[in-house]
Design a protein around this nucleic acid. Structure first.
Lengths: 220, 220
DNA sequence: CGCCGCTTTGAGGAGGTTCAAACACAGTGG
DNA sequence: CCACTGTGTTTGAACCTCCTCAAAGCGGCG
């Protein structure tokens, strides 16, 4: 959330953010087609968002963690275009979008903040498109791990150890790979001593090797 | 642009939109890294937007035509995250973003409009991710052609004939395929009597067949 | 006409998928 | 306590799609 508001302003902002909602592991915060009413700020827990083609193929479009905002997909058509499912028990702030719009008319800093959040999502998706369109399996997985650990580190967690909240299948869906390919790539990294893997526990032993895989040119 | 404004409001909106800029074929409207100052509404012409990885791989993230707005990628970091290149001579409205923000504080309908445009872009990119992550070459190309012709049709052009503004290479980059694969898929469609192709001229002979390829399940 | 960029087409190869089986681990119940 | 089940993961082998490399074709323009 942005900073630099007066006490009264903070009070108004708090009002938007006061409503909470708990989502249990496996439950959806919202589903494709649901009416759009609010954006959600994740207070705790871990989500995946995914879209589905009408013949049933699913694409995970992102994994979101505490501090991130989801639901922007619903604004265009007043109903959600994707589903957000909790990968672990979670709590979110429900921020009614009409209130956000109302307030951001009075508070330029908030307005700018909202715009930045949406723009950040556009830029993130540009990056995923680059990954899906150009990278090979191991590059994708390296990029994924580096991104994940970097975000976790920004939240005070380790920059080398992590416990994946999602299955191989969900990683594969996000990266445009089959779960077997994800598993094989994990094994390969492990054999090469780059990471240590035991199920969902991952320890990054050689972050530079991962970065080199992700972006070969830089290190040649 | 939204509707339902009073005369004075329209006047203010016109002021935002009054500045024009011409971009010749092959020139960039903005480049990756450029300072972000404005959004651009395309008045005429055709653009591609693309991101580049630091080892030089390029991913076309979209093709944009008259009536569409580009530049939202620049809002987060106050500089552009991708490049927008004209594929044919083009003219855009330069809409300074500070003016957009200022005005949308006064005009809720404009504010909502801005939000929708950004949300639409997020949703569009979700769709591309689904395409890149799940579809095979011919499905991608079918989806691409159908999307293109639908957008052209919405602008009063034919719903069966079109002239591609982009090369096979650019189509391939957008679809996560090599140009040869794009070319082969075109040829395959042509052999099957689904389309007629001569270089960049394409005529869709059997739109239903294309739709069937794009989304097999629906027609089984 | 001859050059150049783009496109088409072919042949061979690589990376990822598919199918299948075995394994790990958590939870359940005898 | 341990076998039993179910879900998720790993690993192997065969296959397929798409990529790579190469050459020829097309079309526009000086």
């Amino acid at each position: 959330m942005p900073v630099g508001f007066s006490p009264e302003e903070m009070q108004r902002i708090d009002a938007v953010v006061e409503k909470r909602r708990r989502v249990r592991q496996g439950e959806a915060l919202y589903n494709n087609g649901d009416d759009f009413t609010a954006l959600y700020a994740i207070r705790s827990g871990f989500f995946k968002t995914c879209v589905t083609s009408n013949d049933g193929r699913e694409q995970v479009t992102g994994f979101q963690m505490a501090g991130e905002v989801i639901g922007m997909d619903g604004i265009v058509n007043d109903n959600h275009n994707c589903s957000a499912v909790a990968l672990e028990d979670a709590e979110v702030c429900v921020m009614p979008f009409t209130m956000i719009e109302e307030m951001s008319r009075d508070l330029p800093a908030l307005q700018r903040h909202v715009h930045k959040i949406m723009s950040r999502e556009i830029v993130r998706e540009n990056g995923v498109m680059l990954l899906l369109g150009n990278m090979r399996a191991e590059e994708r997985l390296a990029a994924f791990l580096l991104n994940l650990v970097q975000r976790l580190h920004a939240r005070g967690l380790s920059q080398s150890e992590l416990v994946l909240r999602m299955s191989r299948d969900e990683i594969g869906s996000y990266l445009g790979l089959k779960l077997e390919t994800v598993s094989r790539s994990f094994s390969k990294f492990s054999e090469e001593g780059i990471i240590e893997v035991r199920q969902r526990y991952v320890k990054i032993l050689a972050p530079d090797a991962l970065k080199k895989i992700f972006n070969p040119q830089t290190y040649v």
